[in-house]
Structures are given as C-alpha cells and as structure tokens.
C-alpha cells in the first residue's frame, strides 16, 4: 500500500474576527471528528515564535491554510516562515466580509451549519491531497 502523508491544517484563528473563529471551529471539527487520523495541526504563531523544528512543519506535510479573511495571515505566515501551502482557503468566499461583526461569539454560535460546510470542504481537500501525494 502506498504511503499517504498526514495533512497539516493551519487555521488563522484570528481572535478579533468572526472568520477567525469560524476557521478555528471548522479546523477543530476536521482534526477531532472528520479526519482525526489523517490530519495534524500547529499553532500558526509558532512559525515565528518557535524554532526550526516548527518551521519544518509545512516542508514535511502537505498543508491547508484556513484563513478567516482576505488578509490571509495563515497562508502568508506559513509561506514566509515554513513553506508554500498546498491549498489556501479564504473563508470570505463563504462568508463575505467576515471581520466586521463586533460580537465574535454571536457569529460562531449561530454558524454551526457554516462550520460544518467548511469542515466538509477541508476534509475533501485532505482526501485529494493524500490521493495526489507522490
């Protein structure tokens, strides 16, 4: 059987943006329920705050970055400090402009359907990247 790597999921988890909370929730859904044995994660700021071991992450795994807004911090940070992501997801394509809500938790609690849809799409990308590996 051919080796299939785990896929690295890197959420922006932006604290001040609804999209960041949704990116985090969808990523956790995939990590814990949809693809628990096929995925791994790393805290995005560790690329800068950590050492070479952490920076090796995206060079070792095919990665999917999940950004809550078009500032694309996860994609840009991963590319700058580790390696180019295999897939870059921008949740503004699902949400529209998502960082304008003033109450972040309000949006998250009422967006479980949205979180599920995004999580399903991440899981599909995980399948594809593993199939395409090698």
């Amino acid at each position: 059987m051919a080796f299939k790597p785990k896929v690295g999921l890197i959420s922006c988890s932006g604290e001040a943006c609804s999209g960041g909370n949704i990116s985090r929730a969808a990523t956790l859904e995939v990590l814990h329920y949809l693809r628990p044995t096929e995925t791994v994660t790393i805290c995005l700021p560790l690329f800068l705050a950590g050492d070479e071991g952490e920076r090796e992450f995206a060079r070792s795994f095919p990665t999917i970055t999940i950004d809550g807004c078009s500032k694309l911090c996860a994609a840009r940070g991963t590319e700058r400090y580790s390696s180019t992501p295999a897939m870059k997801m921008n949740l503004e394509e699902y949400l529209g402009e998502s960082c304008t809500s003033t109450d972040e938790r309000w949006r998250l609690e009422r967006s479980s359907e949205l979180v599920d849809r995004i999580a399903q799409d991440i899981a599909s990308h995980v399948n594809r990247l593993r199939e395409e590996w090698g």
């Binding site: 922006c12 988890s13 001040a16 943006c17 690329f47 800068l48 911090c73 940070g77």
Partner: peptide
Amino acid sequence: YVTICLPLLMTDD
C-alpha cells in the same frame, strides 16, 4: 479592552 488578531503581527501589519 479590545483584542487584535495575533497572526497579523506575523505578517507585519
């Protein structure tokens, strides 16, 4: 009190 997105500091915003 207010918060900002921590990853923005990675991208030199």
